[in-house]
Design a protein around this nucleic acid. Sequence first.
DNA 1: ATAACATATGAACATATATTCATATGTTGG
DNA 2: CCAACATATGAATATATGTTCATATGTTAT
Lengths: 140, 140
Amino acid sequence: MSKPEKFKITHKGESEECIECQDKEFCDEVCIHFDAVAKAKSKMPELDTLFSLAELFKMFGDTTRIRIMCALFENELCVCDLAEILGMGQSAVSHQLRLLRTANLVKVRREGKSSFYSLDDEHIQKIYTMGLEHILEERK
Amino acid sequence: MSKPEKFKITHKGESEECIECQDKEFCDEVCIHFDAVAKAKSKMPELDTLFSLAELFKMFGDTTRIRIMCALFENELCVCDLAEILGMGQSAVSHQLRLLRTANLVKVRREGKSSFYSLDDEHIQKIYTMGLEHILEERK
DNA sequence: ATAACATATGAACATATATTCATATGTTGG
DNA sequence: CCAACATATGAATATATGTTCATATGTTAT
């Protein structure tokens, strides 16, 4: 037997050969379930879509930002209001609002000296609600 | 006029006085819309609930973990399979799987030398789908 | 125009997080 | 038991992120 630099295939799946190198016995990888891997790979969205998705959820992945969005479910609020609600400094809140604005999760309405923030669309509440359901179900 | 250390209330809302200090003209804070703030505060869930929620979304807020979950939509997969799909090292994948396991987003099934991972419940797909809808709608 | 206010933002700092490397644990076949 | 394999994990490192401080920008009232 030759091919000393390759490994013996331990899991081949239905096709009984490596889909990468078309080899029936040896391959660069071991322990690969080729069919399952191929299926998963084919159904996977573009990498930049998944990157955007991660960026979106990252916005929900911070307690301060979650609290901001949660507060905005009720009314539109200005930066001072949010700072008061969260018990945090104006600057910290403003920085987080900038992130939420950049991610198109909140929108601003200027009125005199104040900036009033509100949620951009209903998807945000849906995502939030879905997450909350999961949490509450987990606690049972 | 006394109360030099307090600020004049610039926004009082319907109640026309500060709900905190019951003062009609001066308060420790400025630019607070008292009614809106009170409403938001009263509807806000417990802080630890929002913390858990942030922890949950944090799991979705990383491209590697999103890709792992996405791959597991199709079939259960072992660590090697996931490493192959993601084009990453076994250790990196294993570390992320540990996080997902701790957060109860994936479960493991041991079979011989391999560990097969799968999604814990349908909430995960719902959250993922809701996020994806938001992304795609945004791109229009 | 100037002062007071509301917000935004750059820089600095501390903390959190993801990946890699090395190694430990656990399983199977000879 | 031993070797090969699959996975898990601790430590180290690099990077990302959140908050604070100081300050800039923009608005309103006098």
